[in-house]
Amino acid sequence: MTRPLWLLPLLLTACPDEPDPQPDGGLSCFVGNPGLDAEIQIVHRSVEGAIQTTSVAVPLIQPPQGGKVMLVGVRARNLDGCPLQLSASLRDECNNKILTLERRPVILEPQADGWAVPKDPINLDNFSNLPGCPRSDNDRRMNSEPYLLKVSVTDKAGRTAEQTQPITPYCGAEPEFARLCECECRSRFDREECPAVLPDAGTVPGTCWDGGT
């Protein structure tokens, strides 16, 4: 039995196909004036989870995966911060090479002052986790030396903004990791040089027991 040809379009269109594309999630949090250029200011996260405007000093923080990172983000307006594609890089101006670069989507949260800042700053996800130390390709140590930080953002509608700023990463924001940070952040890190540098945990709170390292 053959089916009439005029049924063919119906048959073709009626067959189940790939599922419809998912919606874009509907998340949006435009802040500011859509008629103005997007603006950003570079911020970073402190050890305690506070958002701080970046001037020069940026703490090197130990994330769960180890090593030391700079948690860099933006304060922004005249764009949609939900989500925002954030790109951060650190350049050594002595040789013009990029030492570290990271891109990720982040979510901002509008504030009463007309700007948006990283949502849930106690978490690390809405900041660029810019790897700092250890590394084996740096000619200078990472801490206490000046480098050039560049941050750029793009929102869903393609609005972009960028800012470049000299910074000096530093160890010591977490005193318990300060010695390890100093070691890991030397130029051309050698794994063998830092194995014994571990923080002393002191005593276990409320006891006389040694907490080890």
Binding site: L27, P83, L124
Partner: peptide, 23 residues
């Protein structure tokens, strides 16, 4: 790349990684 979050509210993210070889 391990800092991944593909969420209902942010459904089309892109994650980027880079690797550098020695000189």
């Amino acid at each position: 790349q391990q800092s991944l979050r593909i969420c209902r509210s942010n459904p089309t993210p892109t994650y980027t990684g880079t690797c550098k070889f020695p000189p």
